[in-house]
């Protein structure tokens, strides 16, 4: 079937089978491989994307369910010139990245949280990323990165 979606702020159309997951559509038909597959059963969050601004596991969403909706993947998070945004920079600065396989999903989980709750507590951050497994970091530096981004965004807003 023909899919049409608003992907990373661009309208895209693609031909693909009707019964595949959004994850497969992104990776294999749209060649956006930043979204990862870790379990394919909705348990690890490596495949997290934003669907109409909401964090979802794309392995559990049928591609057809995303039709005509807005999808943001890790490839759509950076600044227009391709450089990392503030949250991505904070992931680098605070050591939130080790093997990096969970990182795209974690960053989207962080963005979803900060959109919803711009000044979360550390516990709220931990709750927000509880669906995203990371085997490398022990999560602490990921929490640091999200917390610091929320503080710097607040400061920026205060100055604006």
């Amino acid at each position: 079937m023909k899919y049409s979606l608003l992907l990373n702020n661009q309208r895209v159309e693609v031909e693909a089978p009707g019964d595949i997951s959004l994850l497969k559509l992104l990776r294999e038909y749209l060649h956006l491989t930043g979204t990862k597959e870790g379990c394919d059963v909705g348990e690890c969050g490596a495949c997290s994307v934003l669907l109409d601004g909401k964090l979802v596991n794309s392995c559990m969403v049928l591609a057809a369910q995303a039709a005509d909706r807005e999808v943001i993947t890790i490839e759509g998070v950076c600044l227009p010139d391709g450089s990392p945004n503030d949250l991505q920079q904070a992931f680098i600065r605070y050591g939130a990245v080790q093997c990096g396989f969970c990182t795209p999903g974690m960053i989207l989980a962080g963005e979803a949280l900060l959109a919803d709750n711009p000044q979360p507590t550390r516990t709220e951050i931990r709750e927000a990323i509880a669906g995203n497994l990371c085997r490398c970091t022990g999560y602490q530096q990921i929490v640091d990165a999200i917390e610091q981004t929320s503080l710097s965004r607040k400061e920026k807003k205060g100055h604006a």
Binding site: G34, E75, C78, V97, G100
Partner: peptide
Amino acid sequence: ADRVDALEKVLGSAMYIADYF
């Protein structure tokens, strides 16, 4: 110091084995 490989990982452009087509 920043990890030398962190940038490609946060951008989602790092190539893992499943990403090779």
